[in-house]
Design a binder for these strands. Sequence first.
DNA 1: AAGGCAGGTACCACCCTTTG
DNA 2: CAAAGGGTGGTACCTGCCTT
Length: 329
Amino acid sequence: MNKLLPDRSKQNNFFICDITDTFKDDMSSMEHPIFSLNKAIDTRVLRYERNNVVIEVSPSVKGLATIYDKDILLYLASALVNAKNNNEAISKAVKFSAYDYLAATNKSFGGTQYQVFKDGLERLAGTRIQTNIKTNSVEITSNFGLIESFTIIKENSKSKAIAVEVVLSDWFYNSILGNEVLTIHRDYFRLRKPTERRLYELARKHCGNQPSWKIKLSTIQEKLGITSQLKQFRFNMRSIISDNHLPEYNIQMENDVVTFTRKQSPKPISNYQFSKITKEDKVDKPSPIRKKDSDMPILDEYALARRRFGDAAVIPEEYVELLKSQGRW
DNA sequence: AAGGCAGGTACCACCCTTTG
DNA sequence: CAAAGGGTGGTACCTGCCTT
């Protein structure tokens, strides 16, 4: 019987960068499964091709980064975004303690957790992504890791806290500078099954604030990155549906069509918080999205707004007005 | 063909102990 | 008491064999 993990968190919200969605522009509808759902070491090369854009995810000998390893990136994104919102200086190199990470992501503090944490860092650093995204009709092939490097610093003087310094890749860091922030429900970290975690991500992204969203079972299997047979996946889906653990969304399945519905009525859109942007913040400051030193593809405001308010949702006029007043629309 | 089922592998939580 | 480490058992995805 699959039970939710205990809730150890005291925080209400968790800000993340939705890093699997940062290959924007011509790839806006892409949901490439970058992270492995398999618990066994996964050394496959994942390849995705669409409209002459090729994305390849290659593991190191340690295997592909898993969906659990992604927690590290979520934690880092959260920490950086919070620091940025507090007007603190941020950089690509981030130092933090393993204990803080475990606490923030609802994990226990057993010795194995520290080992798992270290293995996760290795997989994150080892997993390489290669893509040939075109910018200004120049095709550039770039190859980068999920994180650039990491250093474990053991402090044995006063505390035993294991400090870790992670250097983020440009790709990830720029997505934070670009303010690509969504809030995920804290119960995400209580989801035990990798499949459940991916399902929540998909629901969050595609269903958003819409009342419902339908997708074929075989399509969702592909988007999730599930490689087992369809019959096996169908069986697993039934058990996930009967568990009904996903925060914010219900799932139903009929004739191999999966339907997501909101658990509660969506928040009134005028109360929707779009990543803490207020008029006061923005008017006299350049938009972080338009950072000059950002060499990543710039998201257009429309795509950004669509992301915030859901693909089919109407973008609130006041938000459009806000953007217009800043010359960003 | 399609579903049932068990085994492999690694991960994670739980419990307990050690360390400062 | 908080932080870190170790051992053990449950869990999840995938694979492949077996049954219907």
